[in-house]
Structure formats: C-alpha cells, structure tokens
Design a protein around this nucleic acid. Sequence first.
DNA 1: CCGCATCCGTTTCGATACTG
DNA 2: CAGTATCGAAACGGATGCGG
Lengths: 226, 226
Amino acid sequence: MTGRSYGHYCPVARTLELIGERWTLLIVRELVLGPMRFTDLHGALPGIPRNLLSDRLRDLEAHGLVARRTLAPPAARTVYELTDAGRGLVPVIADLARWGLSHPDPPRPDEEVSPAMAVLAGLAAHVRPGPANGDETYRLEVDGREFTLRLAGGDLTFESGGTEPDLVVSTSAAVLLRLRAGAEPVAKAKAAGRIRFAPDDPVRIRRFLDRFALPTPTARQRKERA
Amino acid sequence: MTGRSYGHYCPVARTLELIGERWTLLIVRELVLGPMRFTDLHGALPGIPRNLLSDRLRDLEAHGLVARRTLAPPAARTVYELTDAGRGLVPVIADLARWGLSHPDPPRPDEEVSPAMAVLAGLAAHVRPGPANGDETYRLEVDGREFTLRLAGGDLTFESGGTEPDLVVSTSAAVLLRLRAGAEPVAKAKAAGRIRFAPDDPVRIRRFLDRFALPTPTARQRKERA
DNA sequence: CCGCATCCGTTTCGATACTG
DNA sequence: CAGTATCGAAACGGATGCGG
C-alpha cells in the first residue's frame, strides 16, 4: 500500500490513490500501446528514475492494473502489460490529452517528444464515431516505433500487429502533433515527405483523417459553415 | 511555477503538471458544483491542511483554472470559482469516478462521504444522452448541501439556483452511492424515506433515474434481455 | 470566521552508484 | 538487461500563530 489515502469514501479519491502519484499515469499511457520491457519503458519516459519506475510498476501490479509476464525461453524476458482494469483508464488519459491539446503551450527547451504520446494525444483523444458497418485498422510508424490501431464503431483498441492494416502511416511524433494542432496542413506535410501513406489512396487517407478528427480543409469549411 | 515539469512535450504530461499534484483534482471536483469560500472548501475536503489548500488555490489561479471573486459589500467575502478552462476538466473527473465505481471497494473505517462527490460520482459520471428536445433541471439536496443540475441534450451543467427545477431530490450522499452501486433499489429507499422526490411524480422520477443511468428494475431487465 | 504564513517531522522524489 | 541501494533535496502533513 503506497498511495496515501485521502480518507474519503469517494470513487474519484480512490482512483487517485491508485494512479494519482507522479509518473503513474504516464507509465499507463505507454503500456496502453502494448506490452513493454523495463528498459524500453525507461527509455520511453525520459527523466524517470529507474527506482521510481520500479516502484510504480510494483504498485500497479499490486493493484491489478498491470501484469508482468515472462516470455518464452528463446527471448526470455519480462514484459509489463495492462490488465483489463488498467485499460479502463484509457478514457482518463484521452481526456487529459484533449484538455492539454485545447490549451496549447509551445514546447519548452530540452523537452522530448515521445512517439507514444504523439499517437495517443494526437489521434486517440479525438476519435470520431465512424460508420457503424466497417472496422478499420491502421498501422502507425512514428519515429521508428510501430502501433496498430483498430477502430470498431466508436471504440479504439491497440493491437500488437498481425492484422493487415487498411492504411500505413509513417511520420514523426512532432509532425503528428503539428497536424493535430492545425499548425501544418496535411497536404503540405505530405508534399514535403514528412508524412507518408501506403497505399497512397485519397479515399482511405481522407477516412483516416476524418476518423481521427485531424484538421482538413473540408473539416474547417464544415466548421465555418456551421 | 510549482508543478514539477516532466520534460516531455506531451499534452498528457503538461496537464498532469498542472493538476497532477495531490488534492488538486479533488479541489476542482468541489468547485465544479459551484463557487465556494475557503473555509467551505476546507470543510468539504476532510483531511486537507489549510496551507495546502491555500497553495493549490494559488497555483490553480496562476494557471487560469480557478478565479477568485470578491462578493459585493453586504456579504463581502472571497469565493473561488472555476474558469472555463477549469470546467474543461470535468470529463477527467467523471472518468475517474466511472473507473472507481466500476472497481468497487467498500468504505474503509473512518472514511468520510462528501455530498459533492456523491453528486458527481453517483450522477454526473453516468449521464445518458436524453431526448434532444427537452432540457431538464434537477435540484439535489444532499446532506444539507444544494446542487442544481441542468441537463441539455447530453451536456450537464451546474447552476447556482434560480431556475425552477423539474424535480427536487432529497437524500444523503451515502444513499446516492448505494443507489448508484445498485446496492439498494430506489423503491426501497423511497419507502424507507431515505430518498424523497418533489413532486412525487412517477414519470419525472423515472426520467431522472433514466438520465443518470441509475439502476432501476426496468434497466436491469433491459440488460438481461440483451 | 477567513486566508495565509511559518515551522518541523515525515514521506516522496530524483540522481547516482551498485548488483545479479 | 533488469532492477536495488543509498542519500540529499523537495514536497507533504499537521500544528500552530497572526492579521483581517
């Protein structure tokens, strides 16, 4: 038991006792995108001391939000992954991202941009309900890290690959954030090679931008007309 | 600048720098329900030291999440209220409440139940989109504190009174939580006088329970049929 | 009663060094 | 690679005290 109690019988306080400590929610954010090993986690969270990461993982495991799994002998390694309970925190993280994006603040000197947060913040926070009929799968390649996003109805889940994606998007975390902020039009980034789509199919690209509510000329016009 | 930086250019991390410290979100939770004075806030948050409350309010004000307003001479007092930016955090709080409610944990000895959290956690976290046509206004009287909730479409806002409510609900925070948890049927609580409705109109009561997704026999049957 | 400042023991954080 | 151990620096918790 590490998270100090608030002494309130309150769901909000209870939850904060579990995930309200420094770094905890950022660790969860990383794990949302898939299981990770200790060192990779440490690398994905610049600035976190290893002992704190160790402590947090222990607490998260004790509270059933994270599970450790030991991989089979060939690559015998321990990985940390979210439990279902842990995945239940995704809306919280998405809301925090939404809030942050709606109160922009330019990057400060020496700040690092992580691919995971670009994916989650730039995309996951703004999923729009799509056509009820079709599922879509996207593969994001962000600064060398790969994420597979599956959209079914209004729900977004992350997969560890396997499924053949409808569209592969390759870009950098910084560009993803610039797109989200509307600081750079998609067309321009594409022309400059800062974002690539495969296949280069306008219909699929448009649907991708639409589902993730990325600013497009059309979206802007739609807004102005309203 | 008090919230230590994470050194990440990430909306989630940025937001956590502002509201990730201990007590901060609970203070915001209280203020969601309306402007409050220092001492009332202190009373509504059992266990918080006054100096911490003071510190947090200062930080929140510095970051534009909270504004202090001095009331007119007759009752010349300072009140703290959320800014629009601060109100933007409501979804975060609602998600935390939702998560907490879905991972129940019985009350621990010596824990206090606050009316505000019962309102927010028990009701606000589960608002169902209602009929697009009609707005509804409810007055909650919880352990002596009054809250006016206005529902317009899927949006919930809190008012400081004035509007004539469609329904007045009087109960205690504990009962509200028990209803939410399905630990006690509404009918039983009503019969025992633990919750009162005015006017005692079945149609309005049903709509109230429906909009806030409180477990009702009908809702349960609906679930089982599905 | 209100809001805040000060003091002080305890807990947490964070940087570095260290071990299997 | 995957953590532990240690230790100084902050932050926190709680008890005051002090002007409005």
